[in-house]
């Protein structure tokens, strides 16, 4: 049998503890052990952070298009069904789609003003989300609409003609394109 060490210890460090002592019975008796049921819960912080290597895969040309100020969509080669948000294969035929250039102008199909949101976007509130429809496209495109007053939201924004603008310094995000009122 190999040598064992009953006196082995993990090294103690000063870093990392949050409190020096928590209230706890001085004597452990049946009564004090039972009283532990009444103890308030201990809550600690658990940070979590991770960086993913996300691949746009077959949708990559769309993002390359945005950096070159071109809005690409996808079209089913036979039926001509056109997706304003990229899609590698058609939902109906299963066929691989072709890349097509979408018009630079469209109309607002639906919108909202976000006064609150996810942590990542909180600093940008209020911001306007819009679904844009394009002549010749069967589906819509989700985007940011700027150049309207978020405090003056009105239903007649729906139907508004809007045109695409592009970030000069592309971030390789779908927000590299955004829309503004066309007139």
């Amino acid at each position: 049998m190999s040598k064992t060490d009953p006196g082995a210890k993990r090294p103690e460090t000063l870093g990392g503890y949050i409190v020096h002592n928590l209230p706890f019975p001085n004597q452990l008796t049946d009564e004090t052990l039972a009283s532990l049921r009444e103890m308030a819960p201990i809550q600690i912080e658990q940070p979590y952070s991770v960086t993913y290597l996300h691949s746009y895969a077959q949708d990559s040309p769309f993002f390359a298009g945005l950096t070159n100020k071109v809005l690409l969509g996808c079209r089913e080669p036979e039926s001509g069904y056109t997706y304003a948000t990229p899609r590698g294969h058609d939902m109906h035929s299963g066929a691989e789609t072709d890349w097509v250039v979408l018009p630079n102008e469209g109309t607002v199909h639906a919108f909202t003003v976000c006064h609150f949101g996810s942590e990542e976007f909180l600093p940008e509130c209020p911001f306007v989300l819009a679904l844009v429809e394009f002549e010749g496209a069967d589906t819509l495109f989700l985007t940011r609409l700027v150049g309207v007053d978020p405090d003056e939201a009105a239903l007649d924004w729906i139907g508004m003609k809007v045109k695409a603008k592009y970030l000069r310094n592309a971030k390789l995000k779908p927000t590299d394109v955004y829309f503004v009122p066309a007139e």
């Binding site: 639906a110 919108f111 239903l155």
Partner: peptide
Amino acid sequence: SFDYPVGGFYSGYYAMMVTRHMK
């Protein structure tokens, strides 16, 4: 890839449905 980075927020998604329903 296409929804979340634009301003991912479910209340925002539903609010877009509302404006379209109203219209």
